[in-house]
Every structure is written in structure tokens, then in C-alpha cells.
């Protein structure tokens, strides 16, 4: 299992285009992914789940990836968030 915490740097928060992009990153993978913020956990493979998280700029989210391709998936998710740091 791989876990990490990320700060949202997207100006508009984790919605709109970044949310759609994250869904794309998280789909078609073998691992299970859990994202959490303030005690709420969601499945980032669903756009509705990401919206439900309501993560604004500056918020911290945690990510947990478990499965046979967890290293690759976690690395992709890390890149997704680090690119948003500009």
C-alpha cells in the first residue's frame, strides 16, 4: 500500500478540469484508490466522489493506493498534484 498527502494548488480547487483529469488518471488501473479530506473518504474514480470532497485551494487531501500496480498509480497521482504546484 502507498499513501501520501497533497495540498491542493489549483486556483479553483479540485473541480472543473483538474477533477476530470484526476478521474482520468485514476481509471483503467488495477489498484483500489481512496481519497480523504476532513474525515470524508471517497473513490476518486468517480467525478461525483471528487466533487463531494469539496477540496478548495490550500486544502490537504490524503491518498491511499493498494493493488498490484500501486507504485505506478501512486506515482501518476503524485505527478498530477505536483504539476498543480506550478
Amino acid at each position: 500500500m502507498k499513501t501520501g498527502e497533497f495540498i491542493i494548488a489549483f486556483e479553483e480547487g479540485l473541480h472543473a478540469r483538474p477533477a476530470a483529469e484526476l478521474v482520468r488518471v485514476c481509471n483503467n488501473v488495477k489498484s483500489d484508490i481512496i481519497m480523504a479530506k476532513d474525515g470524508m473518504t471517497i473513490d476518486p474514480k468517480s467525478i461525483l466522489g471528487i466533487m463531494a470532497l469539496g477540496a478548495a485551494k490550500g486544502d490537504k487531501v490524503s491518498v491511499e493506493v493498494s493493488g498490484e500496480d500501486e507504485d505506478e498509480v501512486f506515482s501518476k497521482i503524485s505527478s498530477f498534484f505536483s504539476e498543480s504546484q506550478g
Binding site: 479553483e12 480547487g13 473541480h15 468517480s46 461525483l48 466522489g49 466533487m51 463531494a52 470532497l53 469539496g54
Partner: peptide, 13 residues
């Protein structure tokens, strides 16, 4: 708008 979106989305799940 993020708060409204989040609130509706939580229910819609």
C-alpha cells in the same frame, strides 16, 4: 460554488 457542489454531490452519491 465548491461548497454547493460538494453538498449536492454528497447527497447524489
Amino acid at each position: 460554488h465548491l461548497k454547493i457542489l460538494a453538498s449536492i454531490s454528497r447527497k447524489l452519491m
